[in-house]
Design a protein around this nucleic acid. Structure first.
Lengths: 251, 251
DNA sequence: GTAATGTGTGCGATATATGAACAAATGTCA
DNA sequence: TGACATTTGTTCATATATCGCACACATTAC
């Protein structure tokens, strides 16, 4: 790609949008300038552009994103066949097992939920399509990492912020890599309260009809009612069924 | 705002992202040029920029959005207090009534779901935060329109594509305006299979602590099990409770 | 074979990015 | 409170990058 095949202003604008997150919903021009590294003048122009187009509100001091911004992400969810294709199977799985079931894909050091059938909320976090979790401590993350060449998996882990969410969390890259080998052999990943106390989950990879792993499928359950050890015998069969059903559907 | 406080390249790029939708998940350069009205050279530069940044895949012929694009919309869902604040009440409401409950806000001629507690899927459409429905034939849309000055509501209707999704759908602006007056007096809106056969719903407005209407709350139910006429006595009390509970929470 | 459609490139006109300069607002401390 | 230092938003000049057109070439359709 040539130098001139790149629209700098567009790239800068996108980084401005990403400057907003849960901890910083309202940002001043200087805030955005600092978190994006853009010049204040440039950040200002991008923010005013967002406001002008209705993607942001501006009260003269702070900018905040508006729901119009959801059009951008929604374009993907609506346009990608995967979420629609997996949803019926996901609903069935959730109903049969009485637990929440989800499908996610990899994006950098995160997994991104693209479909979900929720039962009663068991986690403090509210997961919906578009939600992200760190790849290293989520069952679907383990499965997706295990599907990559080991060097790629290591590279992702090295870019991850490996923090101990609970006393169960694996944070040593070596331990995680070893766990990935186990996952690869078993064909599933088990997480016992590594993300949040009281929550465990089991995940399997989803292959398309050409055998490429394109996503992961999981079931999450409260540790109180279903100890991690019981997940395998209780839910793996249903997961396997859904897995092979989806293999026919995905391409 | 001065002319030079606007980044054209950014605005153009955003319109390129919005060119992708359910019916057109994979677009060529010429496709994008046509649907956005941008010059082919410009569309190409924007698309290559998206690809370069990882927001899109390019196979040499077609572009498709990647999950990374979800970061953009997710910034709003994560950064806005509304979804998080309403979720617990929504879960309760859904559990108590055994039906799906949702909260949405207005964006142009659409309502945008920002939170949802789903029971068994009753609609053909899969609704998640970020999903959109036309404002004119949705119960939450009616409630949100009724909250606006009548001229504003008329303006939105005039920009809407008023099509009859079912034989029940109101499509005449006059009829809808008349219905809005009823909604304003009643304080709730009822939809009987105007969006999809077999689905009815009831919605109330959500005020913040200063009395401004900032969102709408609804319950949807299959018409087979709950005729529209029964929605009011069966669900309005619970909706009213949730409504006033949320009034304390929203600001 | 020819038309129609799609993609890549060069170039001049035009729009944007940049950092410095300035003004206004805000914070600090005696 | 008042004086001073810092931070923030805005403007400006100009070097630089982008836009959109025109054209060449590739591919597909008929």
């Amino acid at each position: 790609m040539r130098e001139t095949d790149f629209v700098g202003g567009f790239a800068k604008g996108l980084s401005v949008i990403e400057a907003f997150d849960e901890t910083r919903p309202r940002l001043s021009i200087a805030d955005v300038s600092r978190t994006t590294g853009l010049d204040r003048a440039t950040a200002r122009r991008c923010l005013l552009t967002l406001a002008e187009l209705g993607y942001a509100d501006y009260d003269g001091k702070f900018f905040a994103l508006t729901p119009k911004i959801l059009r951008l992400g929604h374009a993907y969810l609506a346009a990608t066949p995967l979420p629609t294709l997996v949803q019926p199977t996901l609903d069935q799985l959730s109903e049969r097992t009485g637990q929440s079931a989800s499908v996610s894909v990899l994006d950098g050091t995160d997994i991104v939920y693209i479909a979900r059938a929720a039962q009663k909320r068991v986690m403090s976090i509210n997961l919906t399509p578009g939600s992200r979790l760190p790849v290293y401590c989520a069952s679907m993350g383990r499965v997706l990492l295990a599907a990559l060449p080991e060097d790629d998996a290591k590279a992702i882990l090295s870019r991850s912020d490996l923090k101990a969410n609970t006393s169960h969390t694996l944070t040593a890259p070596d331990e995680i890599i070893a766990e990935l080998r186990r996952v690869r052999i078993q064909g599933y990943a088990l997480i016992d309260q590594e993300l949040e106390l009281g929550l465990c989950s089991i995940a399997v990879p989803l292959e398309n009809d050409r055998g490429r792993i394109v996503a992961a499928l999981n079931i999450g359950a409260p540790a109180a009612s279903v100890p991690a050890a019981a997940l395998v015998e209780r839910y793996l069969p249903a997961l396997r069924e859904a897995q092979s059903a989806l293999k026919q559907v995905l391409r």
